[in-house]
């Protein structure tokens, strides 16, 4: 690898790390959010979630509502995804692609750290809605990443995320995401909304809306699949 390519890769990784700061704290934290599904502009359904990120690499999602989902707990550790449904025998292992959150992938909610999951390269600079942005290509570091590839647009001046195109392994565009509504939580500015538009069903949209972000850390033991029935 030549020196200039190496430097460019370092720059790209740095930009992604900076952009990650707008999506969550480094290390461990908790965020309460809502995944709202719209069709033809009308709200169809919503899910109320509490997400615990552990050391930037593991996550636990508690479903707080509606009644159908209440009490469910999803654990994501690397490529492992477990779901516990109250009253069932054991937590069950899911495929990462299995959908629990409408159009949003599990990783859209449970992962906020692209710099951990993807290798970044700078493709150039582009204007997005009047804002000059870095155009980056993120490639999955391992099979368990939510997407095989992301085309990521990060504002040149502030390093805040603006837009992302999410691709499947086949190269097909799955959905487009827009990072919106910067809000201050726990003394820092975060992008509080991710608008996801399915490439095939353009009249449908899912908004992941963050209502709070706090510095909270659960014990390590909570991230073992056998622990899930003990969590309420």
């Amino acid at each position: 690898m030549s020196l200039s390519v190496l430097l460019q890769a370092q720059d790209a990784d740095k930009i992604v790390r900076e952009a990650d700061r707008y999506r969550g704290f480094a290390g461990s934290f908790a965020q309460e959010s809502e995944a709202i599904h719209y069709k033809n502009g009308e709200k169809e359904s919503s899910q109320h979630l509490k997400v615990y990120i552990h050391n930037g690499e593991k996550s636990l999602v508690k479903f707080l509502g509606p009644g159908r989902d209440k009490g469910r707990i999803m654990l994501m550790t690397g490529n492992n995804i477990w779901l516990y449904i109250p009253g069932t025998r054991n937590p069950i292992r899911l495929t990462p692609q299995q959908q629990l959150l409408g159009q949003a992938s599990n990783g859209d909610v449970a992962r906020t750290n692209y710099s951990e999951d993807y290798m970044a390269t700078i493709l150039g600079k582009e204007d997005v809605d009047g804002l000059l942005c870095y155009h980056l290509e993120l490639t999955a570091k391992q099979g368990g990443a939510t997407y095989q590839k992301i085309e990521y647009y990060v504002a040149l001046k502030s390093n805040r995320p603006v837009k992302a195109l999410f691709f499947a392994k086949s190269g097909r565009l799955l959905k487009t995401g827009f990072f919106k509504n910067p809000r201050t939580f726990s003394g820092r500015v975060f992008m509080s909304e991710l608008h996801l538009i399915d490439d095939l069903k353009k009249n449908e949209k899912t908004i992941i809306k963050v209502n709070s972000i706090t510095r909270e850390k659960l014990p390590d033991s909570h991230f073992h699949q056998k622990f899930l029935p003990r969590i309420r």
């Binding site: 552990h54 550790t77 009253g87 390590d220 033991s221 909570h222 073992h224 056998k226 622990f227």
Partner: peptide
């Protein structure tokens, strides 16, 4: 019916001790 539920099982009277060593190992 109830979704994926062991709705008929009646538990045993028992004592269970369970220990978690980090996020990888558990013993019970």
């Amino acid at each position: 019916s109830k979704d994926e539920q062991d709705s008929n099982l009646i538990g045993n009277v028992l004592v269970k001790a369970e220990y978690f060593l980090g996020s990888s190992l558990s013993l019970d």
